[in-house]
Amino acid sequence: MKKKLILAAAGLFSVFALAACSGGSKEIATMKGATITVDDFYNQVKSSQQSQQDVRNMIIFKVFEEKYGKDVSDKEVQKKYDEAKQNAKDQGANLEEQLKQAGYTEKSYKQLIKQNLAYQAGIKAHIKITDEDLKAAWETFHPEVEAQVIQVATEDEAKDIKKQLDDGGDFAKIAKEKSTDTTTKDDGGKVKFDSQSTTVPDQVKEAAFKLKDGAISEPIQTTDATTYQSAYYVVKMVKNKSKGNDMAPYKKELKKIAETNKENDQEFVQKVTSDVLTEANVKIKDDAFKDILAGLIQTEDSSKSSESSTKETSSKEKDSKSSDSSKTEESSSKTEDSSK
């Protein structure tokens, strides 16, 4: 996954950095009777959907970095870089080689990490949690539980394990022998999770939260969202805990959940992005990219259009009210005449 993310970002700067270097007339290739210059290349690729998206991202990242980059520490950047390095290692790959293939150095890749973190910092800076947000988080919240899990590849295996457990089998022993979950099997399947944890699939959490202490679930089917492969779980609840009716003891957790919900709310994220870009007074100088921020920043033309539309609507409403008033007066007059 990390490799894909790195390679997906590879074209972000290269094309436009090339277009800027040594003027647009720099030759890329020559042949009998013709040449290909940086200008030729730039004019060829600038209208592509990928190039449009790249420039849009460059603008957004640059604006957020200028405003919120100071909130990102070198330590945070290094941590993300180390995570990427470990992720590559876990997949049997080498981060340095991946970066080289994608046209990055360690320094330029860390710069990209910093821009991403600055963007996240900008979104977080606009989050204001309300009581309604906390109540929404409370609806799906469940406190941390202690459980044991056994993961296997087929439903038949899961059913067989469930039967062994129902017949008095030792959960921890069976987990060590049969479970394919390498993170829990050596400890007898022991695991802790709450409603926001990602250590176990959602289907497992949903089933586990319904179990009483000591109860064992029926086989639970899960599907990996990336590989689409199915797996089956058997869960034993060790210590469940009801959240009760009082939010106060969990306010810290609820606030974190509410913040995450905001960060995942695309409408909220777009509104923040729009506000920050508008405040930065972004001006598109190349007509090839004139529409890349459409819907994100309110231009002078769109403001005039909006204002004109508002005035037109207001005018129509006045005319409508005037017409209604005339009709009312006319009706009233006819009623009086009829009365006479």
Rank of each mutant, 00 (worst) to 15 (best):
S308P: 01
T299M: 00
T313S: 08
D133Q: 03
E259C: 00
S274M: 07
Q98A: 14
L5A: 13
D160G: 06
K176N: 07
G23A: 12
V200I: 09
A17W: 09
A158L: 07
A8P: 00
S322R: 12
S230N: 05
K318G: 04
F289G: 07
A215C: 01
N245C: 04
T260Q: 06
K255M: 08
A19R: 14
F193D: 02
L7G: 04
Q148G: 07
E144G: 09
D287M: 12
K176V: 10
M1S: 08
V152F: 03
V204Y: 03
Q44G: 03
L293I: 10
E177K: 14
T180L: 10
E83L: 11
F141G: 01
S25I: 09
P219Y: 05
W138N: 00
S315N: 01
S331K: 15
G189P: 02
K321D: 12
K80C: 13
K210L: 11
G122K: 03
K185A: 11
Y81A: 11
T278W: 03
Q86W: 11
K85A: 08
I113E: 07
G168K: 08
F289A: 04
Q120I: 15
K311Y: 12
P249N: 01
D291K: 04
K252D: 05
S230Q: 08
L254S: 03
K285D: 07
E155D: 15
L95G: 02
S22A: 06
K304C: 13
G11S: 11
Q52I: 11
L277F: 08
K124T: 09
G69W: 07
M31D: 05
G103I: 15
G33H: 10
S25F: 11
I123F: 10
A34Y: 09
A84F: 11
F16T: 04
K163E: 13
A175C: 03
T105H: 04
V63R: 01
D286V: 14
K70E: 15
A102M: 05
K162P: 01
F171K: 03
K327Q: 00
S326A: 13
A125G: 09
G168V: 10
T335A: 08
K285C: 00
I123M: 10
T299G: 00
G33D: 00
D301K: 14
S320H: 06
K239F: 12
K176W: 06
E218K: 07
D167H: 11
F13A: 07
K80L: 15
L296C: 12
K100S: 04
V234I: 15
Y104Q: 06
D224G: 02
A294N: 15
D54H: 08
S320L: 02
C21N: 12
E139P: 02
F41S: 09
V72K: 01
K262E: 00
M237G: 00
K262S: 00
I113Y: 09
E263P: 00
G23L: 06
S303L: 10
G69D: 05
D170S: 13
Q86S: 14
L134I: 15
K100G: 05
T226N: 11
V149N: 02
A9R: 14
D287Y: 11
E76Q: 14
G33L: 14
